[in-house]
């Protein structure tokens, strides 16, 4: 179980890196487009459309990694008043609800792709993109997210019966320290001044 989860996290991180690179490439495309349009009167058509596809790609791929890193926000402030057993159950409940939501989304994303294929949709824009291409990538991202969420839920349920002490650490909201740590860079305090 642990091993599978670790593998999934590696895959999620790798996919996220590809998505991150896509953001940077989009930034470059947009810059070229603006310079071309404003100074040379030539435009790469449809960077807005490509941008939309990149967002769908980044968003759907980012959801899984965010889930594994407990980055989807929850409000846990009232948990301090609950007994530990209730807290653990609520952590698991949140995972179950998330898995349900993720599966619902993947199912409907799949349905949308089916509709696109049935209609043979091609965007009526200068790019004339066959819509199944970007939607196909998106559906893969949503299915990956759903699988990740289900796997995490099964894991949380298993922990509930085998190792309850681990639940809060693995499926509670991240501590503020964890949130902050990503902005603290020892040594960034410049080396060359």
């Amino acid at each position: 179980m642990e091993a599978i989860l670790r593998t999934v996290e590696h895959i999620a991180a790798a996919l996220a890196l590809v998505a991150g690179a896509a953001i940077a490439v989009l930034g470059a495309l947009i810059t070229i487009d603006i310079v071309g349009r404003d100074f040379f009167g030539a435009s790469i058509q449809g960077t807005d459309e490509i941008g939309g596809y990149v967002l769908a790609f980044v968003g759907s791929l980012g959801m899984a990694l965010t889930l594994l890193r407990r980055g989807h926000p929850r409000i846990e402030i009232f948990f301090r008043f609950f007994p530990q057993v209730l807290r653990d159950c609520l952590h698991v409940l949140a995972q179950i609800a998330m898995a349900g939501f993720a599966t619902f989304m993947a199912w409907h994303a799949w349905g949308e792709l089916q509709t696109t294929l049935r209609f043979g949709s091609i965007t009526n824009t200068p790019l004339q993109t066959p819509l199944w291409v970007p939607q196909g990538v998106w559906v893969i991202g949503m299915i990956f997210f759903a699988l990740t969420a289900c796997l995490a839920t099964v894991h949380a349920l298993v922990l509930l019966f085998t190792d309850r002490a681990a639940i809060e650490r693995r499926y509670g909201a991240p501590t503020v320290e964890e949130e902050v740590s990503q902005y603290v860079h020892p040594g960034a305090d410049d080396a060359r001044d």
Binding site: A13, L65, Q182
Partner: peptide, 14 residues
């Protein structure tokens, strides 16, 4: 930086 941009986006879009 890229990972952070991707997870923030995933979180926001969900």
């Amino acid at each position: 930086a890229m990972m952070s941009a991707v997870t923030t986006t995933g979180m926001t879009l969900l």
